[in-house]
Write a protein that binds this DNA or RNA. Structure first.
Lengths: 133, 133
DNA sequence: CGTCAACATCGACGTCCGTGGATGTCCGGT
DNA sequence: ACCGGACATCCACGGACGTCGATGTTGACG
């Protein structure tokens, strides 16, 4: 499950997990329709207040993982709603789920977040930037 | 007493005074509800295929700016829809609008995109990373 | 084996969002 | 002054999304 460069491949709507859009600088060249849909799908997973707080809570938790009960307690949402958001984040490849006993522990996938950040990064001052992946 | 998980660990300090989406790495500390809403609002502006393509087209265009007619021609959307998306992007601070004569030229705001990217950036392998805000 | 707790799934409801056609506004040209 | 083109705004419709209550599944424990 590595996040490699040059992923021109686009997956079907019934996407397998962890299909994070790789380094497509967004400001280098106009991205195609299919790539835009794929990128938007991942960004939509992050573009929600509850999901942002979940990512933040999981990342800031001890050991970099947290169980659902902790998250339900931290947010003002019902347990099914929290489970739904966690599912969305896992399907987007941003979180991993590991069940230990009765509890389900969620952990961050830093590479996925960094891939998103890399796509959004724009050349602040200069015109052309390095194309190193 | 029953063993209800370990829900006494989380503190939930409400929202810190700072509400700016400056360097708040998202993985450093749990972000408050208000900050999450603000961040999500900006991310929602980007989490759309048409808007992503618009950003890409504008950035890759000559001079870093493009008029609406170019964008309507590039995408398969009606002119009102393109105007709507451009409006969303301008209100999110990601594009600027300058009207010259009959045409309206849109240009990218690199700092805005970079701010988003900075928030999403996670410590890939390391643990702690400090950054002066 | 029965019970309880943790978590996921299902069904439903209200709301927001993307889209296009019709229309309005502004500017330049003849 | 009239007309045509470039954009913006308005309105309405269909689909997607966030939320919760109810229910199902699984594992631990007496």
């Amino acid at each position: 499950m590595d996040v490699r460069c040059h992923a021109e491949r686009v997956v079907l709507p019934t996407s397998p997990p962890e299909t994070v859009a790789c380094c497509a600088p967004l400001v280098r060249q106009p991205l195609g329709a299919a790539d835009a849909v794929a990128l938007a799908r991942t960004l939509k997973a992050v573009a929600d207040p509850a999901r942002l707080r979940l990512l933040s809570l999981v990342a800031a938790h001890d050991g970099g993982e947290a169980c659902v009960c902790d998250l339900v307690d931290a947010l003002d949402l019902s347990q099914p709603t929290v489970s739904h958001h966690l599912r969305v984040l896992v399907e987007a490849g941003l979180l991993t789920r590991e069940k230990r006993g009765v509890w389900a522990y969620y952990a961050l996938v830093p590479a996925a977040l960094n891939a998103l950040a890399a796509v959004l990064t724009a050349p602040a001052g200069g015109a052309r930037s390095r194309s190193a992946c």
